[in-house]
Design a protein around this nucleic acid. Structure first.
Lengths: 220, 220, 220, 220
DNA sequence: GATGAATGAGCATTCATTCAT
DNA sequence: AATGAATGAATGCTCATTCAT
């Protein structure tokens, strides 16, 4: 005859139904932060619940399993990754769009390093978790497609060399940018210099042989 | 009659003390492989012991704690990372030495992917484990120094542009190569193309403005 | 806007109060079926509520506790057990009434095996739950009384041996019939033969020594 | 950095290896008693461990799962059921062997009611657990075979009617005896009378028509 | 009447670690 | 040097129950 729990109702009740979604969001965000902080190795449902200020049982009321919570986090991250960090006009040239890619990742490394951390955790886990592997593959394919379209547009605009191997260049650029994400302990200034350098390298590579890249040097 | 203390293995008894070291080595190697396979998340001392064919208690005889075993693995990885994958004559030019860097990482990605996996695991863990962070920092500093010396030599040899920002270029190249290590699901052929492209990009960047990189195109 | 308190079901509103009883009945029936299906071990209030299409909280509105719901199930079973499966005229002889007992249990085993399953579950639980033990005792006493009256009438009608130990014979017959209920995995035809045989045995036992039981052989 | 457990070594160490088997046995016996006492519904590994005086983790050292422990209990029960409760000479007649069957179950009901309780629990569980269903089927087949052989021998010895339906009679007798096992709250004396009565009934049934069963009345 | 949200207590299981032998 | 046996502290998850709305 155990004494079962009495709900602690302390927070102001928002209009019902909304609270549920809010809680789910809170939980996902908390899990996201714990994941960024301690990795999958240190991700404990109990801590997530604690951070939100609820009972584990309540967590399981919203997410039937840890796996489901993780799925929520993945979705949350994907959504964050889709939000552009740098705005750009519709009329931008390919070269400008390419620079935006670098600017975007720089902003993320500087301002939202957890995004990269969580992404790394997912990448590591993807080695043994097919469901996450699938999502990352999808993410990468989207990214690759995006870069390829920039390169193709650049060729059309005669800004890039016509013989550019679009696929390989996109893959290479992704690999190079990824390296930035995994950057550890680099001062902001040093990071900025590295990003600039890589971006110049790539610009020099994609532009037609005789083109000057001097203009780029005026960029941040 | 008691089975206690009776070793199951009848391996040729090497001189005492040597056996101990051998056991430690076996354990470290097993842990290294488990770590590559399942990550920190799935690293269980019991499995490590089992793979070596000994009792967990025995594992704890050699390594007082899991942490100590991990330290052993880190040391083991460092040693592996120090072994060059591609040989090169003393007399090699800076440009040749630079190419060897790419060749080296290509070989590792293709032949010893576990090295990169374990390195990734460590990098992830370093975010929250200062002792590992320290070791990785040391590793990176060494790598950076090595690359910088190549660039400096290249400038001296007049193969590289005299205005090359050695530090930043080294940092950038490390970041780019690191990205390769974190590469997921890229076919060997595609990977080779990406590596080649990045290496050409960097060569084009470091060489004096008018220099042809055509020769490089004949490389794998 | 709040979804609170809005019943999902749009069933024809019976006069208030009746609906309540109906709900209780639905819940009891659902619980009865779950109990037959999964036993006490697998009886979950949530599942009962789900089967009826209501919230667990609502279930607790009708039944303050799981125990109360179980009591309802017991009552429901008792009611079912009281419903005769085979009709018989008032004027029937003792031997005919005896046969009806067998026919009745045969019908239950064949057509309502859940009754026996639930009864078994209750019997098992009665070992440690005095409240259920009490009810089952009452049930058994009633059954025993019924059988005893048959035997006594049979003796009066000179159909049964005058020296019949009415009490023991009734107890024995109950025990024998109970065994049928606990029967596992017996094909319908085999079960029928077993029932027939037991009934013949008992008839041979209760009838005066010289009586023929041949007639019985023509029965199903 | 949690503080892990220090083994409490209090009991006198028996020769190693033996202790292990002893512990397993202790655990199985404890689980058997809990199962008899509280049923599957109330079977908690923690309680089993507590009864033996060890940590739950230690229980799992011996039995990887609750299921494995239950298997051990089933095996233990089977072994108990195989131990005859009443001895009988090789030369016994079929009728004597038949009576032993009743005596055997009477002894069990009186002296080892837990056997029947556990058996009932298993029977109930068998409805939804195929692995237990398989074992019980095997048990029943063995029992049925044993009874059939008694009946066949009895026919050969001309003690039983030659037209006896061996299969059905055996099945019927099993059902009747099973009912005894499920007997609740019957005083020892009443139980004895019931057993005697059923045994007489069956004897009267199996014997050739004219045979007297008076001798049987002198039995217990 | 009905429901969403919440909870305490518990459950089987895992894991690094310890220690007498 | 090696092992069987043991353990404390967690871990993900479940369940009957409660209560404001």
């Amino acid at each position: 005859m155990p004494a079962y729990g009495t709900p602690k109702r302390n927070r102001p009740r928002v209009s019902a139904g909304t609270l549920g979604k809010q809680r789910r969001q809170e939980l996902v965000e908390a899990a996201y932060l714990v994941l960024a902080d301690k990795g999958f190795e240190g991700l404990r449902t109990r801590e997530v619940a604690k951070r939100v200020g609820i009972n584990i049982a309540t967590l399981h009321y919203y997410f039937p399993s840890k796996e489901a919570l993780i799925s929520g986090v993945v979705e949350y991250l994907l959504q964050k990754l889709r939000e552009p960090q740098v705005s750009i006009p519709e009329s931008a040239t390919a070269i400008e769009r390419l620079r935006v890619e670098f600017a975007d990742i720089s902003v993320r490394v500087a301002k939202s390093p957890e995004q990269l951390k969580v992404l790394t955790e997912l990448a590591v886990r993807a080695w043994r978790d097919p469901s996450i592997a699938r999502i990352l593959s999808y993410l990468e394919a989207a990214w690759q497609g995006h870069l390829e379209s920039i390169f193709r547009d650049g060729i059309k605009e005669k800004l890039f060399r016509p013989d550019l191997d679009v696929k390989t260049t996109a893959a290479a650029m992704m690999s190079q940018l990824r390296g930035l994400g995994y950057q550890r302990s680099l001062k902001a200034s040093a990071l900025k210099r590295v990003v600039t350098l890589i971006s110049l390298q790539i610009e020099r590579w994609v532009r037609p042989s005789g083109t000057h890249v001097g203009a780029a040097k005026k960029r941040t």
